[in-house]
Design a protein around this nucleic acid. Structure first.
Lengths: 218, 218
DNA sequence: ACACTATTCCATGGATTTATGGAGGAATGT
DNA sequence: ACATTCCTCCATAAATCCATGGAATAGTGT
């Protein structure tokens, strides 16, 4: 008991989880999977990876125990192994943004200058309870189908311009997307503003909503 | 806004945190630092690493923003950059142990067969409130000095055999150490049992105590 | 200035990781 | 059986990471 070789092995086993989180590509995959299960091909396309590359990365994640698979016909669907994996990803992002300057720089470059008006979860819940607010989920339709905020309407960002008539002309519009580091809701708010509609966004997204234990509709 | 190159950079920045967690050696250092700040030399010795190797790993952790340094005379003291880093380490361990078989195997090999009687934090708090319990901190003295559970007595494991007279002959003894994956308390309980004293251990340790927001004495 | 201590920086070979193509495997439909 | 689809496994070259020793640097005491 307590010898060095065994200790090294134990820590190496924990490090296997760290290694799985040590690639930006894999983190993109984890972020996608946090929205719901997907096939390898869908993941590869959504993350902009080659098929074999995506498969390789998914194998690494699976080896580390972060994801599990389910086979349906010829397709293999990957999903996070548990909600604790989503929590780990969220905490990793929080630690990075709190302590690493490079994250803040990259975030600013990704989101672009300025920011859009935002709402906290609590404020959104109040507004929903009061009524009169139109909540739109601007993620791709499959992610909405895998789970969304109750009362939200699915309006994927790329359909937003064509479906303006479904949104109230003068009522309040709130958009949300995957999470704190997703651009979709920001782009939706800007796109709406460019078309003369006022909208605000939820400050975080579906990932944080789930982690907070709030109700999810499917 | 939202272009791929910027997105890749952002995820790569998060991955820098993952990379820092991708080595068993570095995780051992993080685990030590979770107990309190230490000099490079002390860390190298405690982790069984060469001095330059330890310094290298610490630089990687620093670069990732997980630790910060403080200079005092010729010594440089490293410490965790925030309690969220400790939380990240704890969550990484939890995810590993929940989803990765290898962790469980390595844990069993490290801790040895069988287990000692244990107590939860809540039970310990009750027993302390009732009185009549002797709580011993079996970590090295410097870690006790950096913060310990109120009312605990510092009895480093390597002094335990020589200081049996300080412990009640028939009262209840509870030992604790660094955390859920630390052997010290288990070894203390066994050592006491081998000398005819009955003792139990706290199921987790100082790391989890701090993260739970419970009071810490110095 | 000098010796001394504690740490970081630098160079190096060996090991690991990465992206990518092509072959191989499993389930499905004809 | 056969072709098709979707995915995994294998091989490979480029890039990165690792431990280690020696040189360089910052601070302390004489």
């Amino acid at each position: 008991m307590g010898d060095r070789a065994a200790k090294t092995e134990l820590y190496e086993a924990f490090a296997a989880v760290g290694k799985a989180l040590a690639s930006g590509r894999r983190l993109e995959l984890v972020d996608l999977l946090a929205q719901g299960e997907r096939s390898v091909e869908a993941l590869a396309q959504a993350a902009g990876l080659g098929l074999t590359t995506a498969s390789n990365h998914l194998q690494v994640l699976k080896q580390a125990g972060l994801v599990t698979t389910r086979r349906q016909g010829t397709k293999v669907f990957y999903r996070l192994a548990g909600c604790d994996v989503g929590a780990l990803w969220a905490l990793l992002r929080q630690v990075g943004s709190a302590h690493q300057a490079e994250v803040e720089r990259a975030r600013a470059a990704y989101f672009g200058p300025g920011d859009t008006e935002q709402l906290t979860r609590e404020q959104l819940q109040e507004r929903i309870a009061e009524g009169g607010v139109t909540l739109i989920d601007v993620r791709p339709g499959e992610e909405y189908a895998a789970g969304h905020i109750p009362s939200a309407l699915s309006v994927p960002l790329d359909q937003l311009a064509d479906r303006l008539d479904e949104l109230p002309a003068d009522g309040a519009i709130v958009a949300y997307c995957r999470g704190a580091y997703c651009v979709l809701a920001r782009e939706a708010v800007r796109a709406l503003a460019a078309r003369g509609r006022h909208a605000v966004r939820l400050d975080e997204g579906m990932l944080e909503w789930r982690l907070a234990g709030l109700p999810v509709a499917t």
